[in-house]
């Protein structure tokens, strides 16, 4: 479908006499579908990696209680209250839910999208996980484990935005993103407090920090890279790093609170 759409676009562009120049990537042939892209193969004998931790400095803000009165079923699930998770500081002083990815340095290389889907679940009237990374072209499965109806709404700016209602017990929604977008804010149109973030990149070099605040980007071909770390509250930071053959590079990011 995608290749057909691209071919159609190429034809449309070519047909328009005032188009100054054809898009560089557009295939020359007018109808032959683009063959399977020439996927880049990482040479395991020279591949290196980048790893590190996301530190948090400053005062850890008190967690805010969320008003879940929009839905009595959600309120029932959280008798003790549901708390805002936009900032999760781990016991070891690191930050969870940070999206780290290779921002530049991989230009010209095309990576095959994994067939294994990334799962975004709606559970306990929240998205789980809150932050996910996905490769463009990789399947995204959105499931609903709740006894209530949700309406997932990825508010994409570069990719196509969509929203779809999902009743309890229905099969997962299956979608893909086609272009890099860091990050896509995700809402539930029915439960205003629900929030998730999706980082879509065109290669497999991304990670999301968990309970230990650590990340690793393995199997990186040697090269000069810009690594970016994104956090929902504190924004983005980037660092440059050179990965030599078979080297394990370490970098640290620090986000400062109030």
């Amino acid at each position: 479908m995608k290749t057909l759409a691209m071919a159609a676009l190429a034809i449309a562009l070519a047909a328009c006499s005032s188009a100054p120049k054809p898009a560089a990537e557009a295939p020359k042939a007018d109808k032959a579908p683009v063959a399977k892209p020439d996927y880049f193969k990482v040479d395991a004998s020279t591949a290196g990696s980048v790893h590190g931790k996301i530190q948090f400095r400053g005062k850890k803000p008190a967690r805010k209680k969320i008003d879940v009165s929009e839905d009595p079923m959600c309120a029932k699930m959280h008798a003790a209250g549901l708390f805002d998770e936009s900032l999760v500081v781990n016991p070891n002083g690191t930050l969870a839910n940070v999206f780290i990815y290779v921002k530049s340095g991989l230009e010209g290389k095309t990576f095959e999208p994994p067939k294994e889907p990334v799962v975004l679940d709606q559970k306990g009237c929240g998205f789980s996980p809150r932050v996910i990374g996905i490769q463009t072209g990789q399947p995204l499965n959105v499931s609903n484990s709740d006894p209530v109806t949700h309406n997932i709404h990825p508010m994409a700016q570069i990719n196509r935005a969509w929203n779809q209602s999902q009743d309890p017990g229905t099969e997962p929604l299956k979608r893909r993103f086609v272009q890099r977008e860091v990050m896509i804010k995700v809402k539930c149109n029915i439960h205003s407090w629900m929030r998730a973030w999706i980082g879509a990149v065109e290669h497999p070099y991304f990670a999301v920090t968990g309970a230990n605040g650590a990340f690793e980007l393995p199997d990186l071909p040697p090269g000069d890279y810009t690594i970016e770390a994104w956090h929902e509250v504190y924004g983005v930071q980037e660092q440059k790093i050179t990965v030599k053959a078979s080297s394990k590079e370490e970098i640290a990011f620090t986000f400062k609170g109030e």
């Binding site: 209530v148 109806t149 949700h150 309406n151 709404h153 935005a161 969509w162 929203n163 779809q164 209602s165 009743d167 539930c188 149109n189 029915i190």
Partner: peptide
């Protein structure tokens, strides 16, 4: 569920 469907703005 019907009301929730409309609250959600249907399906794009």
């Amino acid at each position: 569920r019907v009301v929730d469907f409309y609250v959600g703005g249907g399906n794009s």
